[in-house]
Simulated scan of single mutants.
Amino acid sequence: MRIYTRSGDKGETSLIYGQRVPKNDLRVEAYGTCDEANSTIGLALSHLRKEEWADKEAFMEMMQKIQTILFHVGAELATPQGKEVHWKLKKEHVEELERQIDVWDKELDPLKNFILPSGHQASATFHLSRTVVRRAERVAVTLESELDNQLVVSYLNRLSDFLFVAARYINKKLGGTETPLNPDV
């Protein structure tokens, strides 16, 4: 498989099943934003390679699973309405995020005010990932009437919450400092 095909040189690309659309089509924006979020999660994980903590292996495995699911979410967004999706997001995927949020949240100090994205490099990068996922969610909401699987929006919504808690969790585990918002600035 060649990396370049030249088929997009005139501003169009193919969705799954070959339908051609402009590169600024909302579906392309949605799955492209999922790809961007996936890349930022990978960046966050790269900051954790040399770090050690008790459940690092489980954390890294979960994040790689999240990356795989996010890749599949992008494929669902790239599949035209009414066409078969080879891998389908399920309610269990959303529930798994919720369970993990609850586990991590029990270890964290309760929030008393907003916090700034800060602390350990991986934590700050997970905050970046969270904001990119929120953008993907906003685009997916715009497409919602064209989506065969309404769980896409729910998953992206929950994933941004998951990444927020993951950022806080990494700060806690690795000694990163959460910077509270100073409302008087």
Rank of each mutant, 00 (worst) to 15 (best):
D9Y: 11
S46D: 12
L45E: 05
G11C: 08
N182T: 01
Y169K: 08
N157L: 07
F59Y: 11
D105S: 04
D109W: 09
D161H: 14
V28K: 02
F162Q: 07
E36Q: 11
G32H: 01
T177N: 15
Q67V: 09
I3N: 11
I170K: 07
K172R: 13
E144F: 03
T33M: 12
M1F: 11
L181Y: 15
E98G: 03
M1Q: 14
M63C: 07
H120E: 08
R168M: 12
T5A: 08
L77T: 13
L48Y: 05
T33V: 05
R130A: 00
G74Q: 09
P180K: 14
N24W: 03
Q100C: 01
E36C: 05
N149C: 06
Y169C: 07
K65Q: 14
I66T: 14
S14Y: 03
P180Q: 12
I66M: 03
D148I: 02
A166C: 15
I16Y: 13
V73L: 07
V133C: 02
R49I: 07
Y169D: 10
L156K: 08
Y17C: 05
G82I: 08
R158K: 14
W87A: 00
A124N: 10
T177Y: 10
V165Y: 05
R130P: 03
V165S: 04
V152I: 15
A75C: 13
L147C: 12
G74V: 04
F126L: 04
V103Y: 08
H127R: 13
E12S: 07
R49N: 11
D25G: 11
Q19S: 14
A37M: 06
G11Y: 02
T13P: 07
Y169A: 05
H93Y: 09
P80V: 15
L97D: 07
A136T: 07
R6M: 03
V133A: 00
L159K: 09
R2H: 08
R20S: 05
V141S: 08
F164I: 04
R99H: 09
E12A: 03
D161I: 11
S123C: 10
G74C: 09
W104M: 15
L15H: 11
G74N: 00
K112F: 10
Q150S: 15
A140Y: 10
D161T: 14
G42Y: 05
M62W: 12
E107R: 00
N157D: 15
V94R: 00
E178G: 05
K112G: 00
F71I: 04
T125Y: 00
V28N: 06
E12Y: 02
L111P: 00
G32Y: 03
D184R: 09
E51H: 06
S46Y: 02
L48S: 00
L26G: 02
Q19A: 14
R49Q: 14
L163N: 01
D148F: 01
V133L: 01
G82H: 06
P80K: 13
